[in-house]
């Protein structure tokens, strides 16, 4: 007999596995400009499976679910979705994101191509440089609708920008840690 805890965790982890498989399958065919919108689409596909799995388990394990009532079932579905969302976001932020867009990872991999001799700065710049970095990012941001291009001018688009949101959260956190610490040091050495 499944407990409510195990139903939530099974559906969340199960959905995440489906998300991961769909991600690995779909992203073989996605161009750079499609990366950000397809990340969202695959996430919504996972959400769909999450709801289906929850409904299936709720119906097949009626005894527990009947006890908890509609509000309880709704709460379980919501929690399962939240956990699935956190896991997916973590995967994108820490595994797929760095692979797809980290400069350091790319530089390391460029040097890896020339093992055991290594690369000079000129060889590295020939294969990977600021111009490539800029064009790839513009392509990605235009593809996701986060920026738009009007003639030769680039502007912020109508869709909310995840990079700005992350930047502001990080900046607040940074300010809390560093500013309070800086004030403390100032007082200490006065």
């Amino acid at each position: 007999m499944l407990t409510i805890d195990s139903i939530i965790l099974t559906t969340a982890v199960g959905t995440f596995i489906i998300y991961l498989l769909a991600h690995l399958l779909v992203f073989r065919f996605i161009a750079v400009k499609g990366v950000l919108p397809w990340l969202m689409r695959v996430f919504f596909l996972g959400t769909f499976f999450n709801v289906i799995l929850n409904i299936y388990l709720s119906l097949s394990k009626t005894k527990i679910m009947m006890e908890s009532g509609i509000l309880g079932v709704g709460f379980c579905v919501f929690l399962s979705f939240i956990i699935y969302g956190i896991m997916s976001f973590f995967y994108v932020l820490n595994i797929y994101g760095p692979y797809e867009s980290s400069l350091s990872v790319r530089l390391i991999r460029e040097i890896y191509q020339t093992l055991p001799q290594g690369s000079t700065i000129y060889e590295i710049l020939k294969r990977y440089n600021a111009d490539m970095i800029l064009r790839t990012r513009l392509e990605r941001l235009i593809g996701s609708g986060e920026i738009i291009v009007e003639g030769p001018i680039y502007r912020i688009g109508k869709y909310p920008c995840i990079f700005l949101t992350l930047h502001y959260i990080g900046r607040i956190l940074n300010r809390i840690v560093l500013k309070t610490r800086a004030e403390h040091i100032k007082k200490k050495y006065k």
């Binding site: 867009s101 970095i133 800029l134 941001l141 986060e146 920026i147 502007r155 990079f163 700005l164 930047h167």
Partner: peptide
């Protein structure tokens, strides 16, 4: 670079 681009824009 993405953050810098969107912040500049």
């Amino acid at each position: 670079p993405t953050q810098i681009i969107v912040l500049l824009l």
